[in-house]
Computed example of a mutant assay.
Amino acid sequence: MNKVMSNKWIIALYVLPALLLIGILIFIPLILTGYYGLMKWDGIGSMEFIGLQNYVTALQDKKFWDSALHSFLLAVFSTLSLFIYLAISLILASKIKGADLLRKIYLIPMLLSSVAIAQLWVKIYNPSNGMINSLLMAIGVENPPAWLAEPSLVLYAIFIPILWQYAGFYILIYYAALKNIPESIIEAAKIDGASPIEIAYKIKLPLIMGVVKVTIVLAVVGSLKYFDLIYVMTGGGPNGASEVMASYMYKLAFSTNNFGYGSAIGFLLLIITLIVTLIIRKATATKEEIQY
Rank of each mutant, 00 (worst) to 15 (best):
S6L: 13
K8C: 10
I11N: 10
Y35N: 02
I44P: 03
E48C: 00
F49S: 00
K63D: 02
L73D: 12
L73E: 14
L80W: 12
A87L: 09
S89T: 08
L90F: 15
A99T: 02
D100I: 01
L101I: 10
I105R: 08
Y125K: 13
P127Y: 11
G130Q: 13
L135S: 08
I139V: 14
V141P: 06
P145V: 09
A146F: 05
A146H: 15
P151T: 13
V154G: 09
I158Y: 02
I160N: 04
Y166Q: 11
F169S: 02
Y170V: 02
I171D: 02
I171N: 03
L178C: 07
K179E: 01
N180R: 11
A188I: 06
A188H: 14
A194E: 08
P196Y: 04
E198T: 07
I199S: 09
M209P: 00
M209L: 08
M209G: 01
K213Y: 12
V214N: 07
L218H: 13
S223N: 01
L224M: 10
L224P: 04
L229E: 06
V232I: 11
N239F: 15
A241G: 12
A241F: 12
E243W: 13
M249K: 00
S255L: 14
N258H: 07
F267C: 07
K287F: 00
